[in-house]
């Protein structure tokens, strides 16, 4: 699915090892659904009857589910490369990209297990980034913050 060149630090949202395993199992959901449909059909044939409406329903279900796979893949992979620290702000990815400019940010606080970014208009963004200390250190270096 392509190669990206790092220009600015990229942080995963959560443990990248666990997220990778979830991403690896995303296509399996489609296989399991199709497999279960065929399993039911197979058992139906063993019982002596095949429901052709079920065959059509199963095929349709598989197509819909397979078509939804890219969205599932995108959602999980956006967690692996979830937050990019850029000199002009934070790029947060969760399926779609969202950009928060440095001027909009009033406070960044590292809590237990997450980093809270507060904006000047009162909004609060909770980022469960991996390596919180490194993330805060990166914000200091890239944005030139004192503390």
């Amino acid at each position: 699915m392509g190669r990206r060149v790092v220009e600015w630090p990229v942080y995963p949202r959560g443990n990248p090892g666990g997220l990778g395993l979830v991403l690896a199992l995303v296509p399996y959901s489609s296989f399991v659904l199709a497999g279960l449909t065929l399993l039911l059909l197979g058992l139906g044939e063993l019982a002596g009857k095949v429901d052709w409406e079920a065959v059509l329903g199963g095929a349709l279900w598989f197509v819909v589910n397979t078509a939804a796979l890219p969205l599932g893949y995108r959602a999980v992979s956006s967690l692996i490369e979830g937050v990019v620290v850029r000199p002009d702000g934070l790029e947060v990815r969760l399926i779609r990209r969202r950009f928060i400019r440095v001027e909009e940010i009033s406070e960044v606080e590292a809590l237990d297990g997450e980093v809270v970014v507060r904006t000047r208009d009162g909004r609060e963004l909770r980022l469960g980034v991996f390596d919180r200390e490194g993330f805060v250190e990166t914000l200091r270096e890239v944005w030139g913050l004192e503390s």
Partner: peptide, 26 residues
Amino acid sequence: ANWYLGAAVFLLIFGVLPALVHLLCS
């Protein structure tokens, strides 16, 4: 048994490939 069950078994086993490749080759 029958080929529906055969196809189901194929899909259920083949589906583990991404996870296996990820564990071994990432």
